[in-house]
Design a protein around this nucleic acid. Structure first.
Lengths: 344, 344
DNA sequence: TGCTTACGTGTAATCGATTCCATGGAATCG
DNA sequence: CGATTCCATGGAATCGATTACACGTAAGCA
């Protein structure tokens, strides 16, 4: 067992534990002499400071928590990696939690983090309570506890919490414009779950982009998925059987896109000539596909870094600006002339 | 601020802090009366126990650490998710760290975990030191500190640490047998970095499988990558220019496979008829590909769960059996008759 | 009834660091 | 030269829980 404490170090160095502490945390002024002795002793004994004791007294843990939906979604794993690396650069560790799109798991994780007295929280909020349509009690608790928190990716408009998010209207405007130019009129949307603000934002931006391009939005062309592969597959089948025979489709995230593309491959649908496809999230698999899939992408590294920066601002009692990143549209061979133009 | 401590709860409940503690940790016998009062008071005041104080005294943190290479690799994010969920079910939180294939980052993370006195460590070891070819000093330190540790996925044969790993010989034997039946003779291997035991194991099993199928192994048909997409792309180009014109290839992980398949798509190579492809790691993108890619897959959920179970055994001072999972080969349309049989 | 056992509780020690406060000596200043 | 300031240091309090120990009361048993 590693029973070597700061007292052992102090003893070996011939100083008091107070001095040893001062040297080891590089805090206040210490003489070169004792600095040398303490450092030598610490190294000698293999001293590893006890973070519990340290943070019990100093009320800081140098730890933040990041709550996402699911690490297995490349979108969130990218975000998690960016946050973790940025936090590390600032000398903080990161607890990563998966909510699995479930408010109960979210709250359990947040409670554990509150108990561990993390210095701050970066949260992708899971949406409102099913029943009372209010932010979960835990959120209120965090806010009243004064623990610094920022939202990333999604937000809860009901709460006044600084957020870092992405705006897709610009990219969707471009995308729809491109589709219209190619003669597409019936454009379907495979969306995400309504409880996610990002899903709502993308859907709204899609409708707006249709209007801006003088196309009419049609609720029948909207499929409600849940951001997971299986629902993308369901959406793909739904589209194949759709009476309006849409000639183009926009898919709200990468897992759904992969699920959908798998179904279309099995059904022998030729992406591009027969069906134009645009997917959110520029993951490598989209470029591997034949033809490569046009995408609307977020700069997740930048968002992750911005979230950490915003959190640091809150921790320093500043109020960060709400930050919104603009998504990018990348045109690729998955877009082609509409098979039969119904006339403009 | 959340300044409500157990003393406040005790005061409000009209008992001593000792009794309050006993009630709240459900530890020793307490009367129904005080149980009721304490629980009411705790709820009333919104008491959140301070985990620092608790673990300082009790020397347990209910926290484990998981060190992987990179969460963005779906292989590891699957593993991380499985470990996290299993640990959660056992009432423990999980610290996830990325080593980014770098011994220094690995050691930094491990040091932080040691300082935080985690109850145990699940580690995908990053390999030996470049220079002295020995396990890093930090590994030795962990072992001598007595912190329970298990390896998962990869191992360091130099160290006597329980491990959970996967064996690919069986699946590779099947896979090569299938390729031979289809007339393939020159089979290339896009491998991983030699410092990873999994990369070595897969390469060795590949050679063995060739021999077992009476094919000769040829060092010129082995490309050394680093498990990342870019090196898969490099490997794909290397293969296209290879004088032996291999007709089949096995790729050591999913990111490399995606990188390679992107290059082949761009080069107009028809996977299947022109080049048979088998990839390690059955990720969704492999099934989305046209044609779907034959895979050799590990049951990462099972491995993650087994790692937690093994760690719990070590924490309970038992010695777990080293555990090895058998990978599965799934034949798919990416395998086809060799374009030109050079005779048997 | 008298003795033992078990149980619920409170007091106080404890975990291992940080940090307030007091002190003594050196340095600085008028 | 005397007074003041500054600096390095040690002693002891502190953070907030758990837990060893002691004690009083009620229950069990002969």
């Amino acid at each position: 067992m590693n029973a070597v404490t700061i007292k052992d170090v102090a003893l070996a160095a011939g100083v008091s534990s107070a001095t040893a502490s001062r040297v080891l945390s590089g805090h206040s002024a210490t003489s070169a002499d004792s600095r040398e002795k303490v450092e030598a002793a610490a190294k000698n004994l293999g001293f590893v400071p006890n973070a519990q004791a340290r943070s019990l007294r100093s009320t800081k843990t140098d730890t933040i928590a990041l709550l996402i939906s699911d690490v297995r979604n490349p979108y969130f794993s990218d975000l998690a990696h960016a946050v973790e690396q940025q936090a590390l650069a600032a000398g903080m560790m990161t607890f990563i939690g998966n909510a699995n799109e479930d408010t109960a798991q979210q709250d359990q994780f947040l409670a554990a983090m509150l108990s561990r007295r993390v210095d701050g929280l970066i949260v992708v909020p899971q949406g409102l309570d099913e029943e009372d349509e209010r932010p979960s009690e835990m959120m209120q608790r965090i806010i009243s506890s004064g623990t610094p928190m920022v939202f990333v990716d999604r937000t809860l408009p009901e709460l006044n919490v600084p957020s870092v998010s992405a705006s897709s209207s610009e990219a969707l405007g471009e995308a729809i414009g491109e589709l219209k130019k190619l003669g597409h009129r019936n454009i379907a949307f495979l969306g995400g779950p309504a409880h996610a603000s990002t899903a709502r934002e993308r859907h709204r931006a899609f409708d707006d982009a249709l209007l801006a391009n003088a196309l009419e939005s049609n609720a029948n062309l909207h499929f409600a998925g849940d951001f997971q592969a299986e629902s993308g597959a369901d959406g793909a089948r739904w589209l194949l059987n759709h009476p309006l025979k849409p000639t183009a489709v926009i898919i709200a995230d990468a897992p759904m896109a992969i699920g959908a593309l798998t179904v279309w491959r099995e059904a022998g649908v030729r992406v591009g000539p027969e069906l134009s496809v645009i997917a959110f999230d520029e993951v490598d698999a989209m470029l591997m596909h034949h033809p490569p899939i046009a995408t609307i992408s977020h700069d997740l590294r930048a968002m992750g870094r911005a979230a950490v920066t915003a959190l640091q601002a809150v921790m320093g009692s500043n109020e960060p600006e709400p930050q919104e990143f603009i998504s990018q549209f990348a045109n690729r061979a998955s877009l082609a002339q509409a098979p039969e133009t119904t006339g403009a």
